[in-house]
Design a protein around this nucleic acid. Structure first.
Lengths: 346, 346
DNA sequence: CTGAAAGCGCTTACAG
DNA sequence: CTGAAAGCGCTTACAG
């Protein structure tokens, strides 16, 4: 009880109606911006809303209307730069549209575990955005029931899907192609590749495809890609391998963390960068410009990708909303210190 | 309509009741594990639940029961390592307890903006976790209405709060103290400090306090702390300043990203690390072990902190849940390559 | 332009 | 141990 004798329960539309001297339907019309409300009535109701600090109960709204203004993001990871930035972009756009954003982490690609997480996300109501850069994400995207509004954030598809496919991506195949061409143009005979984990077992990942394409076009030998992980430890392990082979002069890495590990491994192996070996990354994480040597990499607009994913979902959920075109923005090669010409031949 | 003639609307407790030949209250009792249900009845109901793929409508449950199994995380950032790891810890613990997790980003510390975000989070129902490492987070924690269940993730408080204060923290004051002592024990006459943005304007941040305490105990001169930011750019700017002063031989940085920027600035200024200047970080981000030189830093258990925050909130929301003790885990100094003895005096 | 009724899918007392 | 009634706070037709 507060001093006025009311309980501290939040005001409902009935309380507002009583205070404004109207029925509660009229209050409902006002909060839903229904056109057919007399101007003076609307003002009276609005005054009562402000005075009582009324906020529509989102739970009751969801139950009665059958629609929840919410998006749940399903992702295998929240700490890697790309994933976290996509999440940030989604949240930013969702907030602007007054949508709640939920998050569910996919701890494994195991079928039952993925199904359970998708179910949990579906239970929340609203729409889904699935980050499908890895097996768990791809499995989740595939496990979403057809009736559920969902947008996938995916690698560059091998074949462009139909326009009705609610997918967004940055053209990372093209980006890998250009980064590889850059290294070849510097004079390297070929480019080795340290891959991020592939999203599927069947087809080659987009970055791998772009790298391979550039090599083939140049008629360069095509070394076996090294399987890395998402973090620097995997890059370090791969870098130690590569350092053993004196023929290696250029290494394309699937992301900046991998590149960081490769850089460290080359240093430990006594091979200078970029003097003896050139290294490039992928993503342009905030720290990459401050490494020594600073990292030549490809900048990807992850937050823009997240915003685009939400815009697309918003369009599916509400006919009024705009549908953003996809792919969103063109990746950009950022040339820094870690790549240069190969050492002169003896 | 599907082949059986039913609409594809999800099954409700009434559908389950019909299928099992009981009233829908009995179904409610079964899904809520109410003890007074005959064993055979329970089995019949459970069979119907499984067959129909029934899932309790969380919205209706929330509206009818008045309790939402959800936590909303309010944070100024989702991409920095510490923040993202705390979020991951919260999500992990929440998932294990079958709680939904929502996220709201605090884009500014502006009073109105913060109030709006807190309102949005409150609208979601359930409890709140506020990451209060910065002015926006501190403002949000202060703006949460008293009636709302909330746990704050905070810097080490200047004075330990009462046991009823639902706060969690790692002892970063102690950690800064120990890192500073480590540098002093190496023989440095004093230690300079590049600070993360302070959480409040009034009191000194916990890390600053720990650093200062170590200097005072050692009778070392107390240089003015340099104001950094959260990212490497701030560290770079501060590092350029410090590099100008030949008396600087040891730098404590408020986090690893700052340290990365300082490392780069010293490199650009031609000062070797750790030969001429020692540098230490804070957090032990995944890449810090792979920098060259690898970073001496303090490891903080952010995911553990997130899990503890959720456990505390869970205890507030459900009497049955355990309350975790706080602070959670002791920070640990990780000695690597970036810090060593000062250069010999000429 | 505004109001009275029914209902969203559950839970919470209250009966029996 | 099980069922019928009322209600959570809204929205959605349906009247007027």
């Amino acid at each position: 009880m507060n001093v006025t004798g009311h309980t501290s329960r939040p005001a409902s539309i009935r309380d507002v109606a009583t205070a404004a001297g109207v029925s509660y339907q009229t209050v409902s019309r006002v909060i839903n911006n229904h056109p057919s409300v007399k101007h003076t009535t609307r003002e009276r109701v609005q005054a009562a809303i402000d005075e009582l600090g009324f906020r529509r109960n989102v739970t009751a709204h969801a139950l009665a209307s059958g629609r929840t203004r919410a998006v749940t993001v399903l992702t295998a990871n929240t700490t890697h730069y790309g994933y976290a930035s996509i999440l940030q972009g989604i949240e930013e756009a969702a907030r602007a549209a007054s949508y709640a954003v939920g998050i569910g982490v996919l701890e494994s690609a195991d079928e039952a575990a993925v199904a359970a997480e998708v179910q949990r996300a579906a239970d929340a109501g609203g729409g889904l955005v699935v980050i499908a850069y890895d097996p768990a994400g791809v499995a989740a995207l595939g496990a979403v029931p057809a009736a559920l509004p969902v947008v996938g954030v995916v690698e560059t598809p091998a074949t462009p899907p139909g326009g009705d496919r609610p997918w967004v991506w940055t053209d990372d195949r093209q980006a890998a192609y250009e980064a590889t061409r850059h290294l070849l143009s510097l004079g390297h005979e070929t480019v080795h590749y340290v891959a991020i984990p592939s999203s599927t077992r069947r087809t080659s990942a987009a970055r791998t495809t772009g790298w391979r394409q550039a090599l083939q076009e140049a008629g360069a030998p095509e070394p076996r890609p090294l399987q890395g992980s998402w973090g620097p430890a995997g890059g370090h392990a791969a870098g130690l391998e590569l350092a053993k082979d004196p023929a290696v002069t250029a290494v394309l890495c699937g992301n900046d963390d991998l590149a960081l590990g490769v850089l460290r491994a080359l240093h430990e192996s006594g091979r200078s960068v970029p003097g003896e070996v050139s290294v490039t990354g992928f993503d342009d994480a905030p720290h990459s410009a401050y490494l020594t040597p600073s990292l030549t990499t490809v900048r990807l607009d992850f937050t823009g990708l997240g915003r685009a994913a939400f815009a697309l979902l918003h369009g599916v959920l509400e006919a009024s909303a705009q549908i953003a075109p996809h792919p969103v923005s063109v990746p950009e090669l950022v040339v820094r210190e870690s790549a240069g010409p190969p050492p002169a031949k003896p």
